[in-house]
Computed example of a mutant assay.
Amino acid sequence: MQLLTSENNLENNSRRNWLKTSALAGAAMLAGKSAEAEPVRKAPARRIPLAVSTYSYWHFGKEKFPIEKVIEDAARMGFDGVEILHRQMENETIPYMNKLKRLAFDNGLSLPLLSIHQSFVQPKEEDRKKDIEHTIKCINLATQMGIPAIRMNTGSWRTVKRDANYYKDGKEPPIEGYTDKDAIKWCIDSMGECLVAAEKAGIVLAIENHWGLSSNIDYLLEIYKPLASSPAMGMNVDTGNFVGDPYPQFERLAPYATIVQAKTYYGGGHYYDLNLDYKRIAEILRKANFKGYISLEMEGKEDAATAVPKSLKLFREVFS
């Protein structure tokens, strides 16, 4: 009897082990099929929004190109926004600004940037104060139009002629009796005053590599970094405003970029010509995890009616 019992136990154990093994194998097969049936899905790539600067239609010629027409053109072509050049505005009245804001809204466009001109590279404190006041006035204009950011410059000594040679090397000696270090301090102090007003208004001041002192990228970062803790401090990186090889410099600035101005030169540039590799630029921005606006500045001599659509096509191909 004991022998039979032992044999029965062995048989029962063997049956239980077989059933357990079969169940595990079946579960594994089902899991494999389930994994095959539901592949891991990648999140869709986010499209970088594209804006066009009103400057693309008007290069400081005699007659201003109407901003209203730029907004309508941009909507027809499928841009996401329009950057407004302050000097191109017809006036600064509230009805005019409200008209621009409403026109953009009705056309499904944002107004991401107001590009202004000012300089803090001025030895006289009263001259710097005037440009601080001008900036604060422009902060109020941007607020009225619902524009979240303003393009800022460092300024320049204006000791050399702005000719082809200047745009090649960007060299500009200081005014006698002063140094670049003086100018860097003036920029930091003046920007700091402007940031107080910008923080209250919720406006970003995006400093740009816009020739002058900012032709030197080390100088630009020396100004930017002490101010970067302010929630209103930003950087506008312009693809066409680099001296020498643009790509290593662009790579240095890309991690700080709030917005990017991207230049094209169809028909030959008004001031200089560049053949920019936008596939390479797009890759640098992807590595920097840039998600903001790219604003087209078409600076060529070709008519904007044909050059702006060409630029948009290029940007859609490389930045999508």
Rank of each mutant, 00 (worst) to 15 (best):
L30Q: 06
S295E: 05
G108L: 02
L24F: 15
G267N: 07
F65V: 02
K185I: 08
S215K: 04
K137T: 07
I223C: 08
D182K: 00
S214T: 13
R102A: 12
G234K: 01
I284H: 11
N8Q: 03
N13M: 10
L4F: 09
V40D: 05
D218Q: 10
L114C: 04
T54G: 03
E176G: 07
F250G: 02
A74P: 10
S311Y: 06
M233E: 07
T306S: 15
H59A: 02
T159I: 04
E92V: 07
Q88H: 05
G267L: 07
P248K: 03
L24Q: 01
L114M: 08
G267S: 12
G244N: 09
V243L: 15
G240Y: 14
N8S: 09
N241R: 05
L19K: 06
T154H: 01
M152Q: 14
L285S: 03
A262T: 13
E90V: 08
P248R: 06
G267I: 07
E36K: 08
E222P: 06
A142Q: 11
K124S: 15
I94Q: 06
H210T: 05
V160T: 07
R158C: 11
T306D: 12
I281W: 15
N241V: 03
I184Y: 00
Y256S: 00
K161T: 12
P248G: 02
P148H: 12
I116Q: 00
K64H: 15
G78A: 04
P309G: 15
L10A: 08
K291H: 08
L213C: 02
A51P: 11
A23K: 15
P255Y: 02
N236S: 12
L103M: 07
N236P: 00
S115G: 11
P255F: 03
R87S: 07
H86R: 06
A23Y: 09
G240H: 06
Q144N: 13
R15P: 01
K181C: 00
E72A: 14
W58F: 11
N165I: 01
D182S: 00
H210L: 05
L220D: 13
K225W: 03
P174M: 07
D182V: 00
G170C: 14
Y265K: 03
I203C: 09
S53N: 10
W18C: 03
K287C: 04
R158F: 08
I259L: 03
K225V: 01
T21I: 06
S53A: 15
L3H: 10
T154D: 00
S311N: 09
K137I: 01
M298A: 13
D131C: 04
I84C: 09
E126Y: 14
A51N: 08
P226T: 11
